[in-house]
């Protein structure tokens, strides 16, 4: 069964500028699906709509058009979802300090969702469960951490707690939006390993939003590359790294700093500019070093080039 299926999803944000109405096309006609237990990485630069996509799927934001299905059940069209569906879809955000109430102890912040969803019959049982999870996360003695406030803990610890908070509800689907980009590398590795262990134990599917290719390919089974609201390439993580097809993916990879190899960078023109008018051709056309005539006229569609490797580019197909 597909955990998440997205069909032609669009999100336009209205913008008023000089008395005229414009739309920022944050997510524009995106379709993909996530299988049970699969981890899909969403890769892209800032402003490509990857976070908006995360909010749309975790139902914090209403779509402009399109459908989202969660285990074959339609969840789009409304933000009023059954409590149980809400429990099954969880979200981890970038800044852990912002996602905890500074006036609650972290234990209380973990307890409240359990109360809401009536997991466990009384608070003592819930607390015991939280302790158990905390110990698993390496936060021991748990009784000690339970009473602390977010500001008393380090970023890595609070982020681990926010992963815990999501995992305590036993979700089927998890959206992790840049969940380790604020942490130091030395701490990051542990938090990632912890998240992956948890996800594989409970067979949770995950959407891992990141701008870091190394991290994305380390974590995910499949990677979706986005550019200005559009999906430009979908492939297995290993495939993306070994054999990137879309010019944008190739450029992105060539610019990513790596430790052990000197690679040639593919030159790129200009910089990302938000689209106000609906573009006629490919969105990457003006910056693309390989662009042809038809690129400026026809918007390329996602085409399957090899099995499981989809690319939206005229030049490649």
């Amino acid at each position: 069964m597909k955990t998440i299926e997205v069909k032609n999803l669009k999100k336009y944000f209205p913008l008023r500028k000089l008395g005229k109405r414009y739309y920022i096309r944050a997510v524009d006609d995106v379709s993909f699906s996530i299988e049970e237990g699969e981890i899909v990485g969403i890769l892209g630069e800032s402003g490509c709509g990857k976070s908006t996509l995360g909010f749309l799927i975790s139902r914090l934001e209403r779509e402009t058009e399109g459908d989202v299905f969660f285990r074959n059940q339609k969840i789009s069209g409304t933000l009023r979802l059954p409590k149980d569906t809400r429990r099954r879809i969880q979200l981890i955000l970038q800044n852990p300090y912002d996602s905890f109430d500074p006036r609650f102890t972290v234990g209380e912040s973990l307890l409240i969702p359990l109360r809401i969803h009536k997991i466990g019959s009384h608070d003592l049982e819930r607390k015991r469960k939280i302790y158990e999870y905390m110990e698993m996360a390496g936060l021991s003695p748990a009784t000690n951490y339970y009473e602390r406030y977010p500001h008393e803990l380090s970023g890595g610890q609070v982020q681990r707690l926010s992963i815990l908070r999501a995992m305590l509800l036993k979700p089927d689907f998890l959206v992790a939006d840049e969940c380790v980009s604020m942490l130091d590398v030395s701490v990051r590795a542990d938090v990632i390993n912890f998240l992956l262990n948890f996800a594989s134990l409970s067979k949770t599917s995950m959407m891992f939003i990141t701008h870091d290719i190394s991290l994305g390919s380390f974590v995910s089974n499949r990677i979706i590359v986005m550019y200005l609201g559009k999906v430009v390439e979908i492939a297995k993580a290993k495939e993306i790294v070994k054999n990137p097809l879309h010019p944008y993916t190739r450029i992105l990879l060539s610019y990513s700093p790596v430790l052990f190899e000197k690679r040639k960078k593919i030159p790129i023109k200009g910089y990302v500019q938000p689209l106000l008018e609906k573009p006629k051709g490919c969105r990457f056309f003006q910056r693309c070093p390989f662009s042809q005539k038809e690129c400026s006229e026809i918007d390329p569609k996602l085409v399957e080039i090899e099995k499981g490797h989809l690319v939206a580019c005229h030049v490649v197909s």
Binding site: A189, S214, V241, L253
Partner: peptide, 12 residues
């Protein structure tokens, strides 16, 4: 230790 905690996409 610092180098070990850094994932590298060229070494899947």
């Amino acid at each position: 230790a610092l180098l070990k905690s850094h994932p590298d996409f060229l070494k899947p």
